[in-house]
Design a protein around this nucleic acid. Structure first.
Length: 105
DNA sequence: GTCGTGACTAGCC
DNA sequence: CGGCTAGCCACGA
């Protein structure tokens, strides 16, 4: 049985994997990184079906506003994971969001 | 081949 | 500052 994931999804997973521990990236940043700055929505879709949940730090991906965004296992779960990594989250928003963002490139 | 949906973003009031 | 609308992309039915 194969995974049969599309190339787009693969790119999203690879980009997400590049996010170091203790830092976060926005959907727009990932979309930009893969060459589709306006595919932020598609990026979220790809992560939602992410077959590499523990392999890919999908919980390190947040919205552009600093909001945690969504998570396939529940937003609260995502927040808990982020806090474990050292990222402070308050009321569903990243604390020091601007500093927590990583520049993939 | 067409339609609808979603872990989004930016702009406008 | 807060809420709403439109735009954009990929995927499944």
């Amino acid at each position: 049985m194969k995974k049969e994931i599309t190339k787009f999804q693969k790119r999203v997973y690879v980009a997400t994997k590049k996010i170091p521990r203790g830092r976060v990236a926005t959907y727009a940043a990932l979309a930009r990184f893969i060459g589709k700055p306006k595919a932020s929505r598609a990026v979220g879709n790809a992560l939602s079906v992410n077959p590499f949940s523990p392999q890919v730090p999908c919980h390190r991906v947040v919205k552009s506003d600093g909001e945690v965004g969504g998570f396939a296992f529940g937003t609260e779960r995502k927040i808990a994971l982020l806090r474990k990594e050292g990222i402070k989250v308050e009321n569903g928003r990243i604390k020091d969001f601007r500093s927590a963002i990583v520049n993939l490139r």
